[in-house]
Simulated assay, not measured.
Amino acid sequence: MPKINGNEIKPGAVLEHDGGLWAAVKVNHVKPGKGGAFAQVELKNLRDGRKLNERFRSEDKVENVTLETKDQQFLYETDGKLVFMDNETFEQVELDSELLGDRRPFLQDGMTATVQYYGDEALMVRIPQKVICTIVETEPVLNGQTAAKSFKPAILDNGVRIMIPPFVGTDEKVVVNTELFEYSERA
């Protein structure tokens, strides 16, 4: 695995550090008035979800890990395991539903997700940034409510609560941003 300098760490980079695999979540380059520059990096453990704040100086060397990325189609869920099919080999794999975290409700049957592997171990599952959902419950539109930019609560067909504009009603399809958990546009 190639080693990189501490000041070359970018958000999203996967590093081998302290005997584990860590993803750089936030990177802040600091140049104090006294002393050398360093990168303040917020790391997240890819295996157990722990977080760590670490300082890396430019002369520090860290192992940069390259993960293998595969597009796989979601088939179904059984006993807390998600079953995906490899689009090239048609091989089925069972992955832990914890890999998706709080974005799990947005995973839909037949959806293509990007799964990142370290050897044979699946570490991350990424679903599309925007998915189409149906509004199952929301408040009715009130006259005069559209003068200022306002939002009202709504419940989607997958049980997730989001805020939507007042002109969107029940049984309408909307595009939802899965990273920010917010309304994007009408579908």
Rank of each mutant, 00 (worst) to 15 (best):
P2R: 15
N7C: 10
N7Y: 10
I9F: 03
I9G: 01
I9A: 03
K10R: 15
A13I: 00
A13S: 13
L15G: 03
E16V: 01
E16C: 03
E16I: 01
H17L: 08
D18R: 15
D18P: 00
A23T: 08
A24N: 07
A24R: 09
V25D: 10
V25A: 09
K26Q: 06
K26F: 03
V27Y: 11
V27G: 07
V27E: 13
P32I: 10
G33H: 12
K34T: 01
K34W: 13
K34R: 13
G36Q: 13
F38V: 02
V41E: 00
E42R: 14
E42G: 00
E42D: 06
E42M: 12
K44M: 12
N45K: 11
L46Q: 06
R47M: 09
D48M: 10
G49N: 14
S58M: 06
S58C: 05
E59N: 14
E59K: 15
D60P: 00
D60S: 04
D60V: 02
D60G: 02
K61L: 15
K61I: 04
T66M: 15
E68M: 09
E68G: 00
K70H: 08
D71N: 13
Q72L: 13
Q72C: 08
Q73D: 08
F74Y: 15
L75W: 05
Y76V: 02
T78N: 13
D79Q: 14
K81I: 06
L82Y: 02
V83N: 12
V83F: 12
V83M: 13
M85N: 05
M85L: 07
M85Q: 15
N87V: 01
T89W: 06
E91L: 05
L95A: 05
L95Q: 02
S97H: 11
L99C: 06
L99K: 09
G101Y: 08
D102S: 12
D102T: 05
P105V: 09
F106R: 08
M111I: 09
T112L: 08
T114S: 11
T114C: 02
Q116E: 12
Y118P: 00
G119Y: 06
D120M: 12
A122P: 00
A122N: 04
A122G: 01
A122L: 06
L123A: 11
V125C: 08
V125Y: 03
R126L: 10
I127H: 08
Q129W: 07
V131E: 09
I132C: 06
I132Q: 14
T134K: 15
I135H: 05
I135K: 06
V136F: 06
V136W: 07
V136K: 13
E137I: 05
E137K: 14
E137G: 04
E139G: 02
E139V: 08
P140G: 11
V141T: 07
L142H: 09
N143Y: 05
T146Q: 03
T146D: 01
A147F: 11
A148F: 07
K149D: 04
S150Y: 06
K152Y: 07
I155R: 13
I155K: 14
L156R: 02
D157P: 00
N158M: 10
G159C: 07
R161E: 11
I162C: 02
I162R: 02
M163E: 15
I164H: 01
I164C: 03
V168Q: 07
E172G: 00
V174S: 03
N177R: 06
E179D: 13
L180Q: 11
E182D: 03
E182L: 02
Y183T: 01
Y183K: 01
Y183L: 02
S184N: 14
E185L: 05
E185S: 13
R186Y: 04
A187S: 12
